[in-house]
């Protein structure tokens, strides 16, 4: 299987990349690690006429702490992030993406710009209330996670724009857990749940965030669960009761291995498990 023919450019600056992209018109696409785009192109489900490879653009592969946030360059590979405890849920979830070879190529920016609701990082970004920076002809703008994911494989990154940086709050003092349920280890999540918990001094739930993978056409916040827990106790009973609302407002797509009803059930179970683990710190 091979992609349809396309033209290719590998500019060495972001400005030239943006110009090349603009010149290429609607069917031009930026290329990062290619692990979302190339499989689609090989199956001929995508056929861009021009790929603008960002590999020579400097400064896009970095992880920096600034004030209370982590700034992660868009071309930072999953492998650069996997298992890094200081990155919280980002470090945990990146270690669970596909397999090592994919993590060695796939990038955080590429994954977020692709906007697959079955991917892990969009959910984590949503839960962490992070944001991405995009550059386009009109300049630079920041898009919050809540605004980024618009529909299935559709994000607020406009044609001609390039996602350059990801910012996530460090959430120091928060507990985190990403529970991924898949058929096999290397598979996409059947359902995934990212839970973040901040305990108050009395042990109660000062704040909490829960987001869901593959429970709709975008990653989703489980707001009912959050509201039910926020400000209350964090014991097993409270968590279990809150988790029962995890599938509220979701519309999970069914597939061969998981019906919508089963996914809803998984969302509840995994939310409980993720919350328990996150609450433990």
């Amino acid at each position: 299987m091979i992609p349809s023919a396309f033209d290719y450019a590998a500019p060495d600056s972001l400005d030239v990349a943006l110009q090349t992209l603009a010149d290429g018109g609607e069917e031009a696409k930026p290329l990062a690690g290619g692990h979302s785009l190339l499989p689609l192109m090989k199956l001929r489900l995508a056929a861009p006429t021009l790929l603008v490879d960002l590999r020579r653009v400097p400064g896009l592969r970095s992880v920096e702490r600034e004030d209370g946030s982590w700034r992660i360059g868009a071309l930072t590979r999953h492998a650069d992030l996997q298992g890094r405890r200081e990155l919280g849920a980002v470090g945990e979830a990146t270690a669970l993406i596909a397999d090592q070879q994919v993590r060695n190529r796939g990038t955080i920016g590429g994954s977020l710009a692709h906007g697959d609701p079955a991917s892990d990082l969009p959910t984590v970004l949503l839960a962490m209330e992070g944001a991405v920076t995009v550059r386009g002809g009109a300049g630079t703008r920041e898009i919050t996670a809540a605004d980024l994911f618009q529909d299935y494989l559709t994000t607020a990154v406009a044609p001609g724009e390039i996602l350059t940086e990801v910012r996530v709050p460090a959430l120091e003092g928060w507990g985190h857990a990403y529970e991924k349920f898949s058929r096999r280890a290397e598979d996409w999540a059947m359902v995934g749940v990212c839970a973040l918990v901040q305990r108050g001094e009395d042990g109660s739930c000062a704040d909490v965030r829960v987001a869901l993978t593959n429970m709709g056409s975008t990653p989703l916040r489980a707001l009912a669960v959050e509201e039910s827990l926020r400000g209350g106790p964090l014991d097993d009973g409270a968590i279990a009761a809150a988790a029962e609302q995890a599938d509220e407002g979701t519309d999970p797509p069914g597939d061969l291995n998981a019906s919508p009803q089963y996914k809803r059930h998984l969302a509840r179970v995994l939310t409980r498990r993720a919350l328990r683990r996150a609450a433990e710190g």
Binding site: R184, A185, E186, D187, L256
Partner: peptide, 16 residues
């Protein structure tokens, strides 16, 4: 055919 690639047709890996 719904299970026409190794994405859908799930051969066990070492991890399973």
């Amino acid at each position: 055919l719904v299970t026409g690639t190794f994405v859908d047709y799930g051969l066990p890996t070492a991890a399973e």
